[in-house]
Design a protein around this nucleic acid. Structure first.
Lengths: 335, 335
DNA sequence: ACCACATGCTGAATCGTGTCAGCAGAATGC
DNA sequence: GCATTCTGCTGACACGATTCAGCATGTGGT
């Protein structure tokens, strides 16, 4: 950091011929309140521009206890395929509110998580966003008790905290609605949540059921498997081999859709002529498949941005906010 | 941040019955140097533990001009498919060196980039990692002149800066070597860099040529297209339709491999029986294809970690460091 | 002529730490 | 026995900002 020592407030004050106090008031927008004449204001502003003055944040933080910095702590989202857009959203929203994001990835290790939280609090972050890769129920880490924080992509049902999650139930309804609109009458769902805490699966399922129920239809079959490409392939293949057929397939994510595509192709079934497919995520993977999968988008960037905005909004009343999931149309649904 | 005001150094000193100075020396590991008796050290340490003392970083930074914080500024890596692991690597390496990462994503907008750099410097980061999504030549932003910094996944040839990049040429040799070992004699390359600044393509190409040359072989054909799934599909299809055939295909990344797979399947050619395929990236996409593609891995996490380590290593002499790319074997090469 | 009040600014304390210079007292050298 | 060195600590200033309390000066009312 060999950088010319930058100008301080004292330099500005001297150069403008006023006291540090006056310069400080002007720079903090309290000129009117303090009845400072416009000519003085102009002199100070000229000095600021002239010297290229930039306030020293450490000094300011020492006085004000605020750092214009937010912490973002996550289990896996930084190195994750799609979820990492949450970081982009958070970073941009922070920037708009004149903050920067301090990032820490715990890899799911509670000790590392505790350490990272400690480090962030030592640095006086103005708040912490606690994010998870998969939507699920969590308990707020002890280190964050009493700290201003917002949960991102997760909820702590017991604790009535501010939390931002995708509207998976609405997404489920939208997915089913796409198939219904295409005249599909028998719907099979591929993918089942592996863990108890995960919320995405059950909610999407509830949405699907609710939407189908409006036409008096039930889910024809549920192909149970983890949410990965090979599992999707194997499970779908087994189901097809057992004589399973359906006009509509809803895959719990795009990777499952990829696996299902592979199994369908192997069985000589084509999309969308023989089977219409809808999935969740709206990842680029959905676009890469042929035909592109119609997918209900996880609004990751928006989730990240909203979490930061709520964190920095002093009027936020807490509670869970669900962000709608939009349908991104591909060519995987018969028309 | 409603958190009980934590203990200060003064509290520790009072509680231990020594001066602030003494306590400070002990906490900074200068007890021996300052010839402080072990009994005094013990008293202070007890007080620290007792009060749960944590130093105030803002105050310390104000004095020392160091924040135990590094900036990471990037164009697109936060929301990127594979590159975001660079963030994970950087975050972990920083943590190991008792630092935190302040992140900023510019989206390629030079104005935003300048703003982010300004904000980071105001916050006195101990250095800045400047990262790009795709390996390429860059010019160091003006705001980073004179600032301790390391380039990540990019180089500034004119400026002799510390820089960490993948060894694309070595990767190219490795890719070709895999095919040669499988007895492949005619190799076609898919994918051509779209921009002048991009370094990955030319270097991989050079490596491929060099390795093939050891057997007196030349690249049989170069299928020119951008590095995306649909481009890979279309370009490969056109090439096949024009009668193109080869025993070995090297795709410049995994997305191109996916596109090539689609075209090969459409042409009734199977992998690896008819065509052996090798690609670059080592992304999860490579695993998802059937058969999984043998792919030369981009060591993103390692790149990110190394960039941070070099940034914080006062003895680092600058210059470009290339990180080797390992081959991740799938089932896409005939044996 | 005197008080009250508004106007436009400033002095000085404060946030919590790091570190230079120095100061007693004990030990050592000759 | 006195100068010197070592031991073990402390006082005070600095870092760069924010902010409370107060101080001249002008202005209007009676």
């Amino acid at each position: 950091m060999t950088r010319r020592r930058s100008a301080t407030l004292r330099d500005v004050a001297t150069s403008a011929g006023v006291s540090r106090t006056t310069a400080s008031y002007i720079l903090n927008g309290r000129a009117d309140e303090m009845r400072i004449s416009s000519s003085t204001v102009a002199k100070v502003q000229a000095a600021v521009a002239d010297l290229g003055y930039r306030p020293n944040r450490s000094a300011r933080s020492l006085r004000t206890q605020r750092t214009a910095t937010v912490g973002l702590i996550s289990d896996q989202i930084a190195g994750e395929q799609y979820g990492s857009s949450m970081l982009t959203g958070a970073s941009l929203a922070a920037r708009e509110l004149d903050h920067l994001v301090v990032m820490g990835e715990s890899g799911g290790d509670p000790d590392l998580e505790r350490l990272l939280i400690e480090e962030m609090l030592e640095r006086d972050v103005d708040g912490v966003v606690y994010a998870t890769r998969t939507a699920r129920a969590v308990r707020l880490p002890l280190g964050l008790r009493g700290v201003r924080s917002v949960l991102l992509n997760c909820e702590a049902p017991a604790e009535r905290l501010a939390s931002v999650v995708p509207d998976d139930e609405g997404g489920g309804r939208a997915a089913a609605a796409v198939l219904l609109a295409a005249g599909v009458q028998d719907v099979v769902v591929v993918g089942q949540d592996p863990t108890l805490e995960a919320t995405a699966g059950p909610r999407r399922m509830a949405g699907i059921r609710a939407e189908l129920a409006t036409r008096g239809i039930e889910v024809a079959h549920h192909v149970a498997c983890d949410w990965s490409v090979p599992e999707g392939f194997e499970a779908t293949r087994r189901w097809l081999a057992g004589g399973g057929r359906a006009a509509g397939l809803i895959c719990m994510n795009d990777r499952l859709a990829m696996g299902a595509y592979q199994a369908l192709a192997e069985a000589g079934l084509s999309v969308p002529e023989d089977v219409s497919v809808v999935s969740f995520d709206g990842s680029s993977l959905a676009d890469w498949l042929r035909p592109a999968v119609t997918s209900v988008e996880l609004p990751f960037a928006e989730l990240g941005a909203l979490a930061v905005r709520r964190l920095l909004d002093p009027d936020d009343r807490g509670g869970v906010v669900s962000v709608p999931m939009a349908v991104r149309h591909g060519g995987s649904v018969r028309r």
